[in-house]
Structure formats: C-alpha cells, structure tokens
C-alpha cells in the first residue's frame, strides 16, 4: 500500500478534528452542568429571583462554552480547509 504525503496530511487532519472536538467537549460539558446545578440550588433557596438567576446562568454558560466553540472552529477548519 502506497501512502502519498497529501493523503497522510488529510488523514491526520480527520483524526485531529475528531480528537479536538472530542476532548474539547469534556470541559465545557462538565462546567456548564455545574453552573446549571448551582442555579437550580440557588433558585430552590430563593424562588423569587428565578428570572434573574436563569439569565445569569445562561450568560455564564455561554461564556464557559467558548472553549467548546474554539474546538468546533478548529475541527471544522481541519475538515474543510486542510
């Protein structure tokens, strides 16, 4: 079996895209779940502020998701550009 250099690059780009998105998804998943859990706990303590707490939770989750977005961007770049 002959492997050309370009094929090798393409193959490892595919593998790298998978590993990038896969490992990149672990941290944001746990972190956002932590934020959601703490928001639930806080709303249980003080249900009057539910709207404010939900909005704060969503903003915090959007920020903690940014590393996941970076992984997604890198994975898509590896798939379509390399």
């Amino acid at each position: 079996m002959d492997i050309m250099g370009a094929d090798l690059v393409k193959a490892f780009a595919c593998l790298g895209a998978g590993i990038s998105m896969g490992l990149g998804a672990i941290g944001p998943g746990v972190g956002e779940g932590f934020a959601a859990g703490k928001a639930c706990e806080a709303i249980g303590r003080n249900p009057q502020e539910a709207g404010l707490l939900t909005r704060t939770m969503l903003v915090g989750q959007a920020v903690s998701e940014s590393t996941g977005i970076y992984s997604l961007v890198i994975a898509l770049l590896l798939l379509f550009v390399v």
Partner: peptide, 13 residues
C-alpha cells in the same frame, strides 16, 4: 469580539 461571534455559532449549532 470572538465571544460575541461565538454566541451566534453556539445558538444556531
């Protein structure tokens, strides 16, 4: 700036 653009990507994906 990246954070603002990431919002669009995350909400739609």
């Amino acid at each position: 700036v990246i954070g603002e653009v990431a919002k669009v990507v995350s909400i739609s994906f």
